[in-house]
Computed example of a mutant assay.
Amino acid sequence: MMNTEWISKYAPYIYFDNNEPFFPVRVGVTVLEEAGPSPSTRRTFAFDEPGLKYIIEYAIYWDYDIQHLYELEHVWIYVGQNDEVIDCDASFHGRHFKGLLRDRSNLVDGTHVKLYSQPGKHAFMPQADMFYLLPELMLATDEYAGRRGLLITGPFDGVYSTDDETDRKVELYLQSFRFKPAMEFWEYRIDSALYTTWEQLHAEVPVRIKERLAEIDEFLGGKEK
């Protein structure tokens, strides 16, 4: 049985924009105890950090990104031999950055790394001002809402498919959520009820996508007549 109290002890504190419309719905957790690949994304760990005991991988799932149906971002917490946080990585649009600042000033309550979520897009940074480096920061959540339709990424290659009509419907739906980021943020703590294994989350995602597409059809039904 999953120890949600222990998982919650190291979970990141996420800071969302005040106008954010979408929040995590599931979190797949894996504890990595030796060198090897991540089960949920294209990344391999060497386990060569001094004093490293294990890495907790949080695969954080949203039903929607402002530009496409379904979002999966990651946080990796590096835990040392004395159960201290020694490092953190956080995903950013298929890549990753260090999530723990050099002075450790964004480590809250001893074990929780404070991370900011890009408005609407959910990629992570340890400081909110870093988002201003993105040329499409404001356009992504507004004019560009929905433009990528139903996204298919690595863990789900061949699990489900999309087409032009599906992508069009997703875009129309997400256009109804377009917004301007406030660039003011509030603290969100992951509810322990959201935790599951990566294997269970991987099985759930296609079901959730099917359910969301049915809801989109219902939403658009009266709008396209």
Rank of each mutant, 00 (worst) to 15 (best):
H74M: 06
L32R: 13
P37N: 02
W62C: 04
F23Q: 00
Q200D: 11
D89S: 02
A35D: 14
E204Q: 11
I190K: 05
F45S: 08
E33C: 14
V27E: 09
V113W: 08
D63T: 10
F177Q: 14
K53L: 06
Y61H: 13
R43E: 11
T111W: 07
F156L: 14
T197D: 05
E49C: 03
N3W: 14
R189E: 14
Y195V: 04
L201G: 11
F179P: 05
V25D: 09
E136F: 07
V85R: 07
T141R: 05
G110P: 11
L151S: 12
K114P: 00
Y15V: 02
L213E: 09
F16M: 07
R43Y: 04
V159T: 13
E33M: 13
L172W: 00
N19K: 12
D48A: 10
N3K: 15
K210Y: 03
S117P: 00
V85P: 09
L72R: 06
H202R: 09
D164K: 03
E84T: 03
R178F: 05
E218R: 07
G36A: 05
E49F: 06
Y188R: 00
W186H: 10
W6N: 05
I77V: 15
D87R: 06
S8C: 01
K210W: 02
L213I: 12
G99P: 09
G36D: 05
I14A: 07
A128S: 15
Y64L: 08
E33H: 12
R147N: 08
V85E: 09
E5L: 15
P21H: 13
V75H: 05
I86L: 09
L213D: 10
F131A: 01
E184Q: 02
V113T: 13
E165C: 01
E224D: 12
S105M: 05
R95E: 00
F16N: 08
W186D: 07
G51I: 07
T196P: 01
D163P: 07
Q175G: 14
Q67F: 02
F179G: 06
S91F: 03
K225M: 15
T153K: 05
L107H: 11
D167T: 02
F97V: 14
P37E: 04
L101W: 13
L172R: 00
N18P: 00
F219N: 04
Y54W: 07
G80K: 07
A35H: 13
G99H: 12
T111E: 11
P119R: 02
V85K: 07
I209F: 07
Y10A: 10
H122C: 08
M130H: 06
F185V: 10
L133W: 08
D63I: 03
D157Q: 10
M1I: 09
V207I: 15
K180Q: 10
I55F: 11
G36K: 04
Q118H: 00
D142W: 01
I66N: 03
R104G: 03
E171D: 12
E71L: 08
C88M: 13
Y58L: 12
Y144C: 05
I209G: 07
T153I: 10
R189W: 05
G36P: 04
M125V: 14
V205C: 11
A145V: 10
N19S: 12
P181R: 02
I55P: 12
K9D: 15
G28Q: 08
L32W: 09
Y144F: 10
R102I: 01
G154Q: 00
Y13M: 01
I77E: 11
D129Y: 09
K114E: 10
